[in-house]
């Protein structure tokens, strides 16, 4: 554990809590991609199956359980509780275009051809692209509420901090997880355009982020 990893995990947690509270308090999931949230729930489910097979630390276990619970609670709010506020027409990204290549790649490029390893690899690849339906939705509608952009900012920051964590771990313990690092770099790149808009539009102005 290092400071980048800890801050990264905290940003990830903050992002998920921001989204959950936004939907819960406003009783609306307008502007939120339910598809991205289902993909994230799938990411956590397939990655954290090792909860049943290996114990790493109390911190590790608690965070995994919290992420899983919040991910499913968010999906529940979007698709059941506040379903009437869900913009399904704008959430039109075809997730099969992500799931099929990601599933295929996880069979081809993994550390071990074992069920849990393939599912872990699948979750890493899927996480790197899971935000695309949300970014697509914002591009399509041309705007996002500022609270939604704060969510995306913390989610992107989490990924960027994990990159710093890997640089740190490489130099201090020689740790290098090729699959996680390559996917992490890809994932962070997706946020760069958003980061630019966030700093130039949201933080300088107020209210919604509108695309040029």
């Amino acid at each position: 554990m290092n400071i980048f990893r800890l801050l990264g995990d905290m940003c990830h947690l903050v992002a998920i809590i921001i989204l959950f509270l936004k939907i819960w308090r406003s009783k609306s999931c307008a502007g939120i991609s339910g598809k991205s949230q289902v993909l994230f729930a799938l990411v956590f489910t397939t990655r954290y199956l090792d909860l049943f097979t290996s114990f790493i630390s109390v911190y590790n276990t608690v965070m995994k359980v919290v992420f899983l619970v919040l991910a499913y609670a968010t999906v529940y709010l979007i698709y059941l509780r506040f379903r009437s506020t869900y913009n399904s027409e704008s959430d039109s990204f075809r997730v099969e275009f992500l799931l099929v290549p990601v599933a295929g790649l996880s069979f081809l490029e993994n550390y071990a051809f074992a069920p849990l390893e393939i599912l872990w690899t699948f979750s890493i690849y899927l996480e790197s692209v899971a935000i695309l339906p949300q970014l697509f939705m914002i591009t399509k509608t041309g705007e996002a509420e500022s609270i939604t952009t704060h969510y995306l900012f913390f989610l992107g920051l989490y990924r960027a901090l994990y990159l710093a964590n890997w640089v740190w771990r490489y130099h201090t313990e020689g740790f290098f997880d090729q699959i996680a690092v390559v996917s992490g770099v890809v994932q962070t790149i997706f946020y760069c355009d958003f980061f630019y808009l966030y700093f130039t539009k949201v933080l300088r102005g107020s209210g919604k982020m509108t695309l040029p």
Binding site: R5, D9, H12, R47, D50, T53, S54, I56, S57, N60, M63, K64, F67, Y111, A112, F113, A114, L116, E117, W120, Y162, N165, D177, A180
Partner: peptide, 10 residues
Amino acid sequence: ADEPANHDEL
């Protein structure tokens, strides 16, 4: 032989 790796990151 193929022990699953211990993935300690979240």
